[in-house]
Structure formats: structure tokens, C-alpha cells
Amino acid sequence: MGYALLLINIIVFTTTFLMTTRPLYLRSLKVKALKIAKQQGLSLEDLVYSYEQMVFFTALPSHLPQLRRAEEKDISLKLEYHSMFFPRLKGVKVIVIKGSNPFDLAYLPIKDFRLPVLDRLSSESNLTEKEYMTISSYIASHPRTLHEIKDEVFRKMQFEETKLAE
């Protein structure tokens, strides 16, 4: 086998590895979160959560043309991870893509994404911090949560008169 083929195979391995890492990590989060929830007698569907710790990097509603003109479809949510090879969810970044430059609007650190039921279990020593992070990471990365965050951010971007008109 020539050196070229060796290089191609290494690239194939690395690419496959990196491309499947995050989806399979998210998949594992789901499996582990469901398992922990079952052990604790919880229903993940019914867990209430708070993204009130989301930090906005600019005051909303904003007069910046990029934000003022943005529609909900221009809001993009990006999951941020700690490492490329050994991913751990770090937070959810909210970016507004309107015009040429993406605008980093808000950030929700996963350590601040709290769920009251889990807080209670944690305080009673029935849930380890690692288990807490597994469930909160799963819920934060769930498409439904991301959609809700998107709605909430868009709502905050609207001026009062627009809200009233709606």
C-alpha cells in the first residue's frame, strides 16, 4: 500500500471519528439521561427548566439594524463543546445571522441551566453532579428546548409596540 493510501485511510478514520463524535455523544446523553430518569422515577418530558441564566451580550430590544431587522429564522443556536475528541456540552450560543457578519447575541452556560427537580434531588444527595449534568445537557440540547430558546430570544428582540401589534 502506498503512502498516499495510508494518508487517505488516516484522513478517512479521523473524519469519520470527528463527524460521528458529537452525534453519538448526544445520543449517549439521551440513553444515559433516560436511564438516570428511570432510576429516579422522573419523566424527562415533564421536567421544567429555566433558561433565565441566559446572558445577553447586548440590551434587548436593540436598535442595531442587524438585530432590529432580524426575523426568527435568522436566529441560529449553536451547541458549544469543551473538546473536539472528548466532547462535553459547554453551552448554547445564540447567533443572529443577518447580513454578512454573524452577531453573537446570547449565551447559556450549561452549568447555569438549572432544573428545580434536579436541584432538589442533588441537595438531597440523590443525584450526583455528573448525573445532573447528563440530564441538563440532554435537555439543553433537545430540539424542543432549542426551539423554545429561539422563541424567547426572538420575543425579547421585539419592541413593545411590535409585541402589542401582534
Binding site: N9, V12, F13, T14, T16, F17, T20, L24, S28
Partner: peptide, 13 residues
């Protein structure tokens, strides 16, 4: 190689 990468990622988490 693809198989190893996929299996490794499936198991390690």
C-alpha cells in the same frame, strides 16, 4: 477504519 471509528465512538461515551 470507518468501522473502528464508528464503533469506538459508539462505545466510548
Amino acid at each position: 477504519y470507518i468501522f473502528v471509528a464508528f464503533i469506538a465512538n459508539t462505545l466510548r461515551f
